[in-house]
């Protein structure tokens, strides 16, 4: 059955008419047209599809879009600072934490959620915070360093 629902993505209200079994990822990419969020494993394992739902990280490949109605959804596009890169994005780039870039949107979402609840994370806390995101290029070290650099920048104000 199709239904018209409202999804609030990055502060914008999007009315969409969708089948009720559609997952949030396919609606964000296919209906709303925000393609920063990636489809990786499509099985809730890799984290490439991660978005924030009311500030909490969620694998959007395995979350029903109808369940997200009237909630605040943040995708990687919402982390930018206008047309410029957001602070975390810039740190990830400068630290060499981006290679092929496919995991990057999910990494940024996880890191954003982590820093919101733990502003000064230890290396172990960063690794746990990013533990739902697979990267097959970097070996993770530079991604972890980038998040720590961002944390330092944030707390220094």
């Amino acid at each position: 059955m199709s239904e018209q629902i409202h999804l609030h993505v990055n502060g914008v209200d999007y009315p969409v008419t969708i089948a009720q079994e559609r997952n949030l990822l396919s609606v964000i990419r296919g209906e709303i047209g925000l393609t920063g969020t990636k489809e990786g494993c499509d099985d809730c394992e890799c984290g490439a599809c991660m978005v924030l739902l009311d500030g909490q990280p969620v694998n959007s490949c395995s979350y029903l879009a109808v369940q997200a109605q009237d909630r605040e959804i943040t995708t990687v596009e919402g982390l930018a600072d206008g047309q410029a890169l957001g602070m975390l994005q810039r740190n990830l780039l400068e630290a060499g934490g981006v290679q092929c870039g496919f995991c990057t949107p999910g990494m940024l979402i996880s890191a954003t959620a982590l820093l919101a609840r733990t502003p000064e994370p230890s290396e172990e806390q960063v690794r746990i915070g990013l533990s739902g995101n697979l990267c097959r290029c970097t070996g993770y070290t530079k991604i972890v360093q980038a998040v720590q650099r961002a944390a330092t920048e944030l707390t220094a104000g």
């Binding site: 809730c44 990280p57 694998n59 979350y63 959620a113 982590l114 915070g129 739902g132 995101n133």
Partner: peptide
């Protein structure tokens, strides 16, 4: 359980 994303929902 799972990852932070799994544990939050």
């Amino acid at each position: 359980v799972g990852s932070p994303a799994t544990r939050h929902v």
